[in-house]
């Protein structure tokens, strides 16, 4: 444990290799599922049984796995993208407006509303699932993607307003005052001052909101009936229930359903990491 004795200071240190080794070991185990998914997706069942651990040589890759998986997963991915993007955008927009309301002014009823919002943070979502189901039934929203979008918008609302309020309150007042003198409406102030100033927190909340929509499977399982509406969550559950398991195809399907997130991640890695780190600094 020698390496621990080195304080962080600029310049390379010789005896840090042990730390690196330990970190790599932990990360290797952590990323094992990812590795298994990628390497099994290249194999058929026979190949997989003969050699479950190591990647197959590229010459023996079973490309049909991907073609087949694509046919299965593509509609699910499309549905999931619609739901996740729409829910995220809606949620951010409305909570931005809500946060602006609370952060800028103290109007009559503000306090009551704020207290009402905060109580909900304590309320476990799980207690609601039953009446929510009945409500959606009464609104004729069962078996539709709208239901998922609306629930996604409503679900993250409280947390986002709570986080955004702190950020908006810290924007220097002079900025708003100057805008007001120029005759800018509240809406203009929101779009021209608040949004640019809250970029990083918006990105963080957006990512979290997107992930929670993307990963949800309990509500879709209860809400969706028709196969053409399945989101990734339900689709993968049904794929896992097949009687004949082609592990290669299944893993290829898993890989393809992670692909949109992987691409997104590659392009916004820095934002992803920084946003997630900073977002909680003030929260």
């Amino acid at each position: 444990m020698n390496s621990f004795d080195t304080p962080p200071s600029p310049g390379p240190k010789k005896n840090e290799w042990l730390s690196h080794l330990v970190i790599w070991a932990i990360l290797a185990v952590e990323l094992l599922p990812f590795y298994m998914m990628v390497q099994i997706s290249q194999k058929d069942n026979l190949l997989f049984l003969e050699n479950p651990w190591l990647p197959a040589s590229p010459s023996s890759w079973v490309w049909e796995n991907y073609a087949h998986a694509f046919r299965i997963v593509f509609p699910y991915v499309a549905n999931s993208i619609v739901v996740a993007v729409a829910a995220t955008v809606g949620c951010l927009l409305f909570s931005l407006m809500g946060a602006y309301f609370f952060a800028r002014y103290k109007l009559p009823f503000s306090n009551i509303l704020w207290a009402g919002f905060l109580t909900l943070m304590l309320m476990p979502a799980i207690t609601n699932i039953v009446p929510l189901f009945v409500l959606l039934k009464q609104l004729h929203l069962l078996n539709s993607l709208y239901a998922l979008i609306i629930l996604g918008m409503a679900g993250g609302q409280i947390f986002c307003i709570y986080m955004l309020r702190n950020f908006i309150e810290e924007i220097p007042k002079d900025l708003f005052e100057a805008a007001e003198i120029d005759g800018a409406s509240h809406w203009l102030q929101l779009t021209h001052i608040v949004i640019p100033m809250c970029g990083s927190i918006l990105a963080t909340l957006g990512i979290l909101q997107f992930l929670s929509s993307w990963n949800d499977f309990l509500m879709p399982l209860v809400i969706l009936r028709d196969p053409e509406l399945y989101t990734i969550g339900v689709g993968l559950i049904y794929l896992d229930g097949e009687y004949v398991k082609h592990w290669g195809e299944i893993m290829a399907a898993f890989l393809l359903s992670s692909l949109p997130m992987i691409v997104l991640f590659l392009f916004s890695m820095k934002l992803f990491v920084r946003g997630l780190s900073q977002g909680f600094l003030k929260g």
Partner: peptide, 13 residues
Amino acid sequence: FNAIGLGLVALAF
């Protein structure tokens, strides 16, 4: 990169 990422999301959407 962020712009490209955002663009891709918009496109996919």
